[in-house]
Design a binder for these strands. Structure first.
Length: 926
RNA sequence: GCUCGGGUGGUGGAAUAGGUAGACACGCAAGACUUAAAAUCUUGUUCCCCUAAAAGAGAGUGCGGGUUCGAUUCCCGCCCCGAGUACCA
């Protein structure tokens, strides 16, 4: 009898599939297409752990299933390889990040290869490859040379804008641009020199230079995007982040805010993810209202944005953001010193400090009043950092009765509070609900919130005091990084104005440097490059692009990865279209997933792609958790105290490798001392029984918590098929799962049982007779279930159903070649190596199982001739009776109440009703 | 605080359209094989009461209500856990 040795057969078939080019994908116009994509991984130095694999295994099962259903399946993999860790390593060691990256990629590929994943590796792409980033630069160049036409709701080439400027100036242009662009006539435009013209155009480009307040991370020496900063610290590395004014490249994603919002309705994504994008875009409608200051000499106009114009009569103060242009100039001399001091401290405060003091209201009075547009009452103007400079207009009208933040501020500084909406429940102020009737509001009195808003907007418009306005929380995306390991910008400067390099000069490759640190003068690392200038001697851009540049369009490149003349050919793009199913982490919701949608819409506008949403359906795999262990170090010493005694000392908890801890959390002391050089002379305070007990917690699996399980160890012990199956068997794809090795024996035993079904101890040969009813029923039921389970991504139940099938066929002693062959095709997407081995060697098929079509089930074999009915009395099941399906409802009723197990419950009671649900159950109501 | 998930045996989980709660697997217990152990196989395993055992009775899907002949599933109110978000006017 042959034994199941996964390590032998898995290597053999992996090589076979590679040699046969089994996963080669091409356009097959006679077949329907299916594009299934995993999120672009960053190849970190730590390699993969089993948590990363959940998604890869799931997509592989679907890809294999879809192929066996006759689809042309695009299932590629590649690497998003620019990024900070390789560069930090380069700064420390001097090793070029390209070498680090290549090593890491190789390790990833080996790990993925050992899992038997069916990627078409000929289509693999890497963002750091100049032949790839050539096109990232090319797309950036298109963004630089485009503007957004609001009337047509699409991006257009900058040449079209120049034509408009030549003919009519920019007074009539309806475009997304800088806040107040310089206005000019056609004649003025024509008289401008090139420099002046370029300055004007820059205000309209979709990729533009801008002085902005950025998240500066001194430790990393670079700026970070909003979503790369968590609680005032950098997401990578956890370094502090401060706010700083810098000239940066930005992308005008805000032009697409409305389309990014509307597009969510067309795509099949988790509601939570859509909701998060909606909140991130943060569309709010309201009005901008003008307030004029009182004062003898100078009168200023302050424009405030509000979503509640209906509460205008409740305004008791105005607040300016500290960064507001008027904040420094408005104050009366008596208040100016205090105000300037406040503004300086607040602006220099780091993001971190702002957050920790967020709950406290701070601010200063300017000494100046504005006039209420209707009551003509004076309204004090304050400055406070609870108003954000870059949202709305940077100025708000304070309505303390109906806004909690304004309420806190008013209470703090004893400003008056005027209630203007009657609260039906009469609860405490502030009353923020949009229900109720207006009061103390002159011409609005008695109106509902909705009607009052409408009336107020009309009145403001008529008196030219305000206009309806929609704002977005979404900011333009800062696109410069002061780093080496990223795509260089295809940009050079002429008299400090940016120009794009001609496309023939792309790719613009990264230069080699002697060091990857910033220059002594604080310039980015590219400042060290010799001859970093164009042929004509113009200086090139020193910043590089952020990590998300390459991942914003990679899904198109897989369609046509070797194209030298286009980023994707129209033929390939129109065949593969959007990704049908995208599987990856939810943590990319407000970053990658938003930027990829933005770039797709932009490329669509310019006519380069037909789709305008990149990912039709999206699923997030749940995170993998694992038990992590802690030891407790007495502060300032190398002494470690056991779990139960830790409270007697002042200790810090420290993660310890779970490999050094047994299942009862007992630490292996010697192994711990040898774990790291600095622990060599560690000493311990032990429990009474002489053991060191570690603390334990369930946490997200990660190398830094020392609780990661690498696939390599599992594969060495059980084989890739067992790992694939077990990862799916743990629970639903989208749910967080706890990895523990206990259950893996169960799925491994299942594969051994499967093996024995084909190589039984009895040695009975396979039969080619037509299978018996019982075997047919089992296999057809399983075909139905597996198909349904895969289609609803329920892989854990699919594995269960495969187990049930093997259990049943084993009990039956099934030897039918026909039935067993069908079973292998069902098993193949989950455990491809074992299925191929048994298909070719046990059953003696000549062709690969990959060519076998997914079996169809025959309804005829699923028909039952009878059904077991649970018989319930008042909903409680009392007995079960088998009835033939030919029985009528009346016959079932009569039989049920005549059954001895039932009659004893009916004694002395009257039957009120009998419910018979065909093929389900019977309920007797007494 | 807000938004979105989720609470089912000792454990992971199943129940796809309101119809037998606990599939499948782990663990545990007993037995077979073995000199013995491991491996393998067989049987049992929601809890509680009763019983020598069988049989039987009751409770039960976070808690409290509701709709229904019937609710893990639908509705209302609460509690707990997890994730995301944070002055966006």
């Amino acid at each position: 009898m042959k034994m199941y040795h996964p390590q032998e057969i898995e290597c053999k078939w992996q090589k076979y599939w590679e040699d046969q080019k089994s996963y080669h994908t091409s356009i097959a116009s006679d077949k329907p297409k299916y594009y299934i994509l995993d999120m672009f991984p960053y190849p970190s130095g730590e390699g993969l752990h089993v948590g990363h694999l959940v998604g890869y295994i799931a997509t592989d099962i679907i890809a294999r299933y879809k192929r066996s259903k006759g689809y042309a399946v695009l299932h590629p993999m590649g690497f998003d390889a620019f990024g900070l860790p390789a560069e930090q390593y380069a700064i420390q060691t001097g090793q070029h990040p390209a070498i680090t990256t290549a090593n890491n990629i190789q390790r990833y590929q080996q790990q993925l290869h050992k899992l038997g994943l069916s990627y078409d590796w000929d289509r693999a792409i890497t963002t750091t490859d100049p032949q790839y980033y050539k096109w990232t630069q090319w797309i950036f160049r298109q963004l630089f040379n485009s503007w957004y036409d609001i009337r047509l709701q699409k991006a257009r080439p900058i040449a079209a804008l120049i034509t408009i400027f030549q003919q009519q100036g920019n007074h009539q242009v309806d475009a997304y641009c800088d806040k107040s662009p310089k206005l000019f006539t056609a004649q003025e435009w024509q008289q401008m020199n090139e420099e002046a013209q370029q300055t004007c155009l820059l205000a309209y480009r979709l990729a533009f230079l801008e002085d902005t307040l950025v998240n500066w991370c001194p430790e990393l020496g670079t700026v970070l995007a909003n979503e790369e900063v968590k609680d005032g610290f950098s997401e990578r590395g956890g370094h502090p982040v401060v706010r700083k004014q810098m000239k940066q490249w930005s992308l005008r994603i805000t032009a697409y805010a409305d389309r990014l919002l509307a597009g969510l309705q067309k795509i099949n994504w988790p509601t939570s993810t859509k909701e998060m994008q909606r909140n991130w875009i943060g569309k709010s409608t309201g009005a901008e209202i003008q307030f004029t200051t009182t004062g003898e000499n100078t009168q200023h106009t302050i424009t405030a944005f509000t979503t509640r114009p209906d509460t205008l009569f409740g305004v008791t103060f105005l607040v300016l953001a500290p960064e507001h242009p008027l904040a420094t100039t408005l104050c009366t001399p008596a208040y100016a010193t205090a105000a300037t001091q406040y503004i300086t401290t607040v602006i220099n405060r780091s993001e971190r400090e702002r957050l920790t003091t967020a709950h406290k209201a701070t601010g200063v009075f300017t000494g100046v009043y504005a006039v209420h547009p209707f009551t003509q009452q004076p309204i004090p103007i304050w400055i406070s950092d609870y108003v954000l400079a870059n949202y709305g207009t940077g100025a708000i009208m304070g309505v303390p009765a109906h806004d909690s933040r304004d309420y806190t501020f008013a209470t703090q500084f004893q400003l008056p509070i005027t209630q203007v909406i009657a609260d039906p429940s009469d609860s405490e102020l502030p009353y923020e609900t949009k229900e109720g009737v207006l009061m103390h509001s002159d011409f609005l009195n008695g109106l509902s919130v909705q009607a009052a808003t409408q009336t107020m907007l009309e009145k403001l418009a008529a008196l030219k005091l305000g206009t309806p306005k929609t704002t977005y929380r979404l900011r333009n995306a800062i696109f410069s990084r002061q780093r080496y390991w990223g795509e260089p910008f295809p940009i050079y400067y002429k008299n400090t104005l940016p120009h794009s390099l001609p496309t023939e000069e792309l790719p613009m490759a990264l230069p080699s440097l002697d060091s990857y640190k910033p220059t002594e003068t604080g310039e980015p690392p590219l400042g060290r490059a010799l001859d970093w200038k164009t042929k004509d001697g113009y200086p090139l851009e020193l910043n590089t692009m952020p990590g998300w540049a390459g991942s914003s369009w990679y899904f198109f490149r897989y369609m046509d990865p070797h194209n030298r003349s286009q980023f994707v050919s129209p033929e390939a793009e129109s065949y593969w279209q959007a990704v049908d199913l995208y599987v990856g982490g939810a943590e990319h919701t407000t970053g990658h997933l938003l930027y990829a949608r933005f770039w797709t819409k932009f490329l669509h506008d310019l006519g380069y792609v037909t789709v305008d949403e990149p990912f039709q359906q999206m699923i997030h795999q749940g995170m993998m958790q694992s038990k992590s262990n802690f030891v407790y170090r007495i502060k300032g010493t190398k002494q470690f105290v056991s779990y139960h005694l830790r409270e007697q000392y002042e200790t810090t908890a420290m993660h310890v490798a779970t490999a050094l801890v047994d299942k009862d959390n007992v630490l292996q002391l010697e192994a711990f001392q040898n774990w790291r050089p600095d622990l060599k002379d560690a000493t311990f305070i032990l429990e009474e029984d002489g053991q060191y007990i570690c603390g334990s917690e369930t946490e997200k699996m990660s190398k830094s918590k020392f609780n990661a399980i690498t696939p390599d160890d599992v594969i060495n012990q059980y084989g890739a098929d067992t790992l694939r199956l077990y990862t799916m068997f743990l629970g639903p794809l989208e749910q967080a799962k706890l990895w523990d090795m206990h259950g893996i024996e169960g799925v491994h035993r299942f594969l051994i049982k499967t093996w024995r079904l084909f190589y039984p101890t009895s040695g009975v040969p396979f039969s080619t007779d037509s299978p018996d009813e019982a075997a047919q029923k089992i296999i057809h039921q399983t075909i139905k279930k597996i198909g349904e389970d895969i289609q609803r991504y329920s892989f854990n139940t699919a594995v269960s159903n495969l187990m049930i099938c093997v259990n049943d066929l084993t009990a039956l002693g099934c030897r039918h070649r026909h039935v067993l062959g069908k079973f292998l095709v069902l098993l193949a997407p989950f455990a491809p190596h074992l299925a191929e081995e048994l298909w070719q060697y046990a059953l003696g098929n000549e062709a690969s199982i990959l060519a076998a079509p997914f079996p169809e089930y025959d309804e005829a074999y699923l028909q039952e001739s009878s059904c077991e009915y649970p018989i319930a009395i008042n909903g409680k099941v009392r007995t079960k009776i088998v009835f033939p399906l030919t029985m009528t409802q009346e016959q079932i009723e009569t039989a049920a109440i005549a059954h001895p197990d039932i009659t004893k419950w009916l004694e002395g009671k009257t039957i009120q009703k009998i419910v018979v649900v065909p093929q389900k159950m019977v309920n007797i109501v007494v």
